[in-house]
């Protein structure tokens, strides 16, 4: 069978589908001061999994606000810098109107994912961390 570390080189999704791959990628991103990109990506996926229903509306609102405050609000943060102004306004609007939709972070997640695919992921595959691991 193909060793997991070779699968990680196939696509960003193959890497993010494996716990060891995620851990190694996170170590690399931490060195680059960019671990928030990965945390935000998973936070968006986790948020989308929370089904809207009466019993967890408060939790969803709290979580949406926490994601917004940590990653989007600070314009100097790496996630905020990789997210388009229109996307940030849309999220801010959803929070202000308490319109908490499972897909409200989807566009921001896509923008951050594109940045990882074009930039940090190829750099990771060439990094000492990955090469030493293989």
């Amino acid at each position: 069978p193909t060793p997991p570390y070779l699968k990680w080189a196939e696509s960003l999704h193959s890497l993010l589908d494996d716990q060891d791959g995620i851990n190694l990628f996170r170590t690399f991103l931490k060195q680059e001061d960019s671990a928030d990109l990965l945390d935000f990506w998973f936070a968006c996926s986790g948020f989308r999994k929370l089904e809207p229903c009466d019993s967890n509306e408060e939790k969803r609102l709290k979580l949406a606000k926490a994601i917004y405050r940590k990653y989007i609000l600070d314009n100097n943060g790496i996630v905020s810098r990789q997210t388009k102004p229109a996307t940030k306004s849309f999220i801010k609007d959803c929070i202000m109107k308490q319109h908490i939709d499972p897909a409200m972070f989807d566009q921001a997640q896509t923008e951050v994912q594109s940045m990882m695919e074009d930039n940090t992921y190829p750099l990771f595959l060439k990094s000492d961390i990955y090469l030493e691991y293989t």
Binding site: I22, F42, A43, G46, L50, L63, A66, I67, K70
Partner: peptide, 20 residues
């Protein structure tokens, strides 16, 4: 805001693939 951080960590963990 510790409760924010807890909430975020649990959310991130829920989206991670389960270990084989």
């Amino acid at each position: 805001l510790n409760s924010d951080e807890d909430l975020l960590q649990r959310c991130i963990g829920s989206a991670m693939p389960k270990r084989q």
